[in-house]
């Protein structure tokens, strides 16, 4: 499902060159739940951004869902992200001026799904994370755990093949973190969704199928 070969990422300024990722090779088959761990600044988020097509590698190849995406242009990448990928972020990234259900509908808006169909799919996604009764609330009326569940509903509403989660439990206490983790493992086991999760939490990483460790931008063997 996800194939990375000899991926490097180097950030250059006039005076300094920083290697964020160094020769990463990664293969994640469909239905796998992979966690990525490592100290701050080791390149975890950069790797996740490259898998999520939010960033480009300096060199190497990226193959997602059987498609080599390296040559894709902006519009094609946007459409690919919309159909194949779902994102969950540590800081939720909910739009404060939109209600819960409108936040969840967002990916479908860019897929040009009709409004009735959009509402139906958003309601189903919210029901699957146990928040159907909070549909018309606004993000500032929710707890951290609830916000993350809304973000999960938004990530799954378009039935993506892959979910990319960047420290999804990082801002939550252990109880809420476990709740979120349960939803993610449920998605993986019930829907066979491929999940790549960046985390700092060993306990959360233990719940995944496979763990990849990074240190200074390189894979720890």
């Amino acid at each position: 499902m996800i194939e990375l070969q000899n991926v490097n990422k180097v950030y250059r300024t006039k005076t300094i060159e920083t290697t964020a990722l160094n020769d990463i090779n990664l293969s994640v088959p469909a239905g796998e739940f992979l966690s990525i761990m490592g100290p701050s600044g080791c390149g975890k988020s950069t790797l996740l951004n490259i898998i999520g097509l939010l960033d480009e590698p300096s060199n190497g190849s990226v193959n997602i869902a059987g498609t080599s995406v390296t040559s894709y242009n902006g519009k094609k990448i946007a459409s690919f992200r919309n159909e194949k990928l779902g994102f969950i972020f540590q800081s939720f990234h909910l739009i404060p001026d939109l209600s819960v259900v409108d936040n969840v509908e967002l990916p479908l808006l860019y897929r040009k799904v009709g409004s009735k169909q959009r509402r139906m799919m958003a309601e189903a996604a919210l029901e699957s994370v146990g928040l159907k009764n909070r549909m018309s609330h606004y993000p500032n009326q929710l707890s951290g755990g609830q916000k993350q569940r809304v973000a999960i509903a938004r990530a799954i509403v378009g039935n993506p093949d892959i979910i990319l989660a960047d420290e999804p439990t990082g801002n939550l206490d252990s109880v809420m973190g476990n709740e979120v983790m349960d939803i993610l493992t449920g998605l993986n086991s019930n829907n066979n969704t491929t999940i790549v999760m960046v985390t700092h939490d060993e306990n959360m990483a233990k719940k995944t199928h496979k763990l990849m460790r990074l240190y200074d931008g390189a894979q720890v063997k």
Binding site: G74, K75, A78, R81, H93, I95, P107, Y110
Partner: peptide
Amino acid sequence: KGEVGLRRAIGASGSS
């Protein structure tokens, strides 16, 4: 900016 990043992540193109 965060909203722009999010919209791009979930499928908005530059022109959108």
